[in-house]
Design a protein around this nucleic acid. Structure first.
Lengths: 202, 202, 202, 202
DNA sequence: CGCTAACCGAGACGGTACGTCAAGTCTTAAC
DNA sequence: GTTAAGACTTGACGTACCGTCTCGGTTAGCG
């Protein structure tokens, strides 16, 4: 979607090099406008104007508004969080959930995520890409759960799909509806409740 | 938002009577287009054309696209489900969740809900109205939980907000992401897991 | 066009009596709006609202905007000016022109006339009716000139059409373009110039 | 108002070059529709459709309907008539009036002029621009008269405003009312009558 | 060192839908 | 059967962005 981290050797033979400043100013303009006016009011035209860049320059590097926003999101995250491995499921999930809930504190990431979720509802082509991205996130949690299964922390036969939903569902629900704040400090209690629910009842 | 179920005797003194057929055809056109092309591709102009109705007629009765979709959703639901009261929290929540999950089987309602959630991310004015609607749904679950609290089915001090999120969160998450089907048959197991999580651990 | 001055005993057999107040308030609203916002901004809808009358009531009595404005114009003129007959062409024309130029002092009549002239350019159906009305005015001047011809005040063979144009043309031109004020005091000089132009040159 | 006859080297710094074909087809469509249906029925939307051009392209170059019509008028006139200078006022005015009356033979120019006069009555903002345009035409005649004054062809103290009105008034009046044809062959006689009217009567 | 490719800016272009407005017609209820 | 109220169809308004395109002008790196 972005062009930043792709094939390192495109078969180029010459030509003007890419203007890195333009890229940054576009991503920054995107982030700024996202926070100021929301995903709905974000337009490519507006981004270009704000970034002092030609509209065609934006279109050259990002083929659509969600692609642009995804890149702005990635640009914001910068350092990728490593997959937690504390030795216990509770520790892993708590660390993961705390990271997740921290997104609620970052307006750029929060607006980007909710905007992308909205876009996925509006544009079925993008929905596919979005679902794929969600899948990678779910798979991460899936690995934590599989390790816990091996350690017999949760019973065999546990519905891992539902278990994963219990982690992500409440997070997305709060992020989207904003009926209550997303506080990383709540992560521990929430995870504990979920884990207790998954235990084998004798 | 709608005009259908309001004061039965508006103080009218004259004037052409409202054309009920026009209303129905608009709502049906909305539902049809919603399912066929999705919320994003739904336009007032398209609805008017499909319903063989003037655009201004649509605007007279529904001031915006989300208002129209909300009415189409309500029109689809028709008979309101009563608040469940089976005597136990498990029974109540299972009934409630089964009803909820059944939405996933109804393309009109599913598309309407996901579209409205998207709209709430795009339009902060609508977000307010949407949040209010969500609140009424949460309050229903809140009443079930409060009754259970009185019956000592769940421990005093339970975080009711999180408990409610555990019911709605996974539902919305599946509805929006569509990574797994929403099956009413799963309601019982899901509710059991949540309730076990809420129990006091000695 | 109007309904005001017609058969005093219409063969009515029953039904609600016509509301004369409604008529007056419509005409007054028309005159007021004409002066306030000009012919272009005058709408039947606006007149109805200003007159506290239903739109359909306006449409019942006046079939179009120009018809309404013509009636408002007639209503303003009230007492019809008699055809001048002073014994000399100069006297007749000066009296006539002074009356004509006085219209420039009456905003309602001025706006009505210029508006109707505009309407005649926009709506070819109305142009016909307007031309007929203009013809009656020209015929009046034609009678003054014919009498003068009999009295040998102007030479036989005079182009009466052009002579009439020399009276009305500058009047309309000033009324429409407003490049210079229309002053009844100028009537005498203007008429004298025209008459001198019509004299037989040896 | 137009963009056609301006600075030959606009300081362009980039951007797609203007499509001259689109311009011509818009102006031709305007002229055609003007003649076919009249100024009143002329719509920007209709022009765009007829010219096979996007509505926004029309709006890009002409900010309003009168601006478009003025350009169509200018486009029709093409070669500007030079200010006449025959040595006598009678010759100058006859040449000028003959040119003027010739407009009556050209449906495009005639419809454009009457439409613009109508527009000036409807839209006070445009009236200003229209009045300015009229002023330039009047000033031309004013220069002819001033020269004649210097040559003592007309008496000192002549009311030049009224003299100018005697040239333009009858022309506009016939053009607008169409009670009689506008024939360039009449120009000579009309001018003679006016000039005789302006002579000093001893 | 010049060629060439790709970049960047500017902005025109054909489109689509927006939400508004008034036109003129029609239907109903009240008087 | 007039009057009031207002629902309805129709059509154009002027605006905002869309995504594509065509320019003029720049700036690498390869040969």
């Amino acid at each position: 979607m972005s062009t930043t981290p792709q094939n390192p050797q495109p078969p180029r033979t010459g030509g003007r090099i890419r203007n890195e400043d333009a890229h940054h100013s576009v991503l920054e303009a995107t982030a700024a406008l996202l926070v100021e006016n929301g995903y709905g009011a974000l337009t490519i035209e507006g981004v270009a104007k704000r970034a002092n860049v030609a509209k065609s320059t934006v279109y050259r590097w990002w083929k659509s508004k969600p692609a642009l926003v995804m890149d702005a999101y990635a640009h914001e995250t910068a350092t990728r969080v490593p997959e937690p491995d504390t030795g216990t499921l509770e520790g892993d999930l708590t660390a993961f959930a705390a990271d997740l809930y921290a997104i609620g504190r970052d307006p750029v990431r929060a607006k980007a995520l909710t905007g992308l979720m909205a876009e996925a509802q509006l544009d079925s082509a993008f929905a596919e890409a979005f679902r794929a991205w969600v899948r990678t996130r779910r798979e991460l949690v899936g690995r934590l759960l599989t390790r816990a299964l091996a350690r017999r922390e949760i019973p065999a036969g546990t519905d891992l799909t539902h278990a994963t939903d219990l982690v992500f569902g409440p997070f997305w629900y709060r992020l989207l509806v904003e009926h209550a704040p997303l506080d990383p400090a709540d992560a521990e209690a929430h995870v504990r409740t979920v884990l207790q629910g998954l235990e084998r009842r004798e």
